[in-house]
């Protein structure tokens, strides 16, 4: 549960690995960005939006008005509306009456934007984190090792390319026999 006092997501957590750091101008903007970034992902609540790397920008365009840029993980991601509502609510609670959350598609989100802390939390949660996606060019080879998040074995098999959400694939560990989700590279 996020409270307005929970500002653990700092700019250091902002996605920089994909070369697209979120920007923050003033100290207040940085504070508000951290606040918006602390919102948990509606479908993967172990991750914050900052750790997921979907917050692109936050700007104060007037003393009581904030514009936020959010990018979806997948084009059809239904969580984007819940994310927008949660960001509006947390900023309202922090005294910003006028919040506009805009969805931007370009440059496209990549799993490389998930922070190192985000990857660690995914694995703790039982979801194998994505491997480096690198430059765009489609799915990378399934031959590259994916470790079981339960026992750490690298002997795992793909069961289905699409799992509980579009962003995950379903795999099984051949050592401990547990099925698990793998956050697909995108």
């Amino acid at each position: 549960m996020v409270t307005t006092g929970d500002t653990t997501a700092t700019r250091a957590d902002a996605p920089t690995s994909a070369g697209r750091p979120t920007t923050a101008g003033t100290a207040l903007e940085a504070e508000l960005l951290a606040l918006a970034g602390s919102v948990p992902d509606p479908e993967l609540p172990v991750l914050t939006l900052a750790e997921l790397g979907v917050l692109r920008d936050l700007r104060l365009t007037a003393p009581d008005r904030v514009e936020v840029e959010l990018t979806p993980t997948y084009t059809g991601c239904p969580a984007i509306e819940a994310m927008s509502a949660d960001i509006e609510r947390i900023l309202h609670d922090h005294g910003i009456p006028d919040v506009e959350v805009r969805t931007v598609l370009s440059p496209p989100w990549t799993t490389d934007a998930i922070t190192a802390e985000g990857r660690r939390k995914l694995e703790d949660f039982g979801i194998a984190p994505p491997r480096p996606a690198g430059p765009a060019g489609g799915p990378i080879s399934v031959d590259l090792t994916i470790r079981c998040p339960h026992c750490g074995s690298t002997d795992t098999t793909l069961l289905s390319r699409f799992s509980s959400t579009a962003c995950k694939a379903l795999r099984r560990c051949e050592s401990c026999r547990e099925p698990f989700d793998h956050f697909k590279e995108l």
Binding site: L105, S106, T110, A136, L186
Partner: peptide
Amino acid sequence: GKAVKEVA
């Protein structure tokens, strides 16, 4: 640019 990665 966004969708082509999903379509792959």
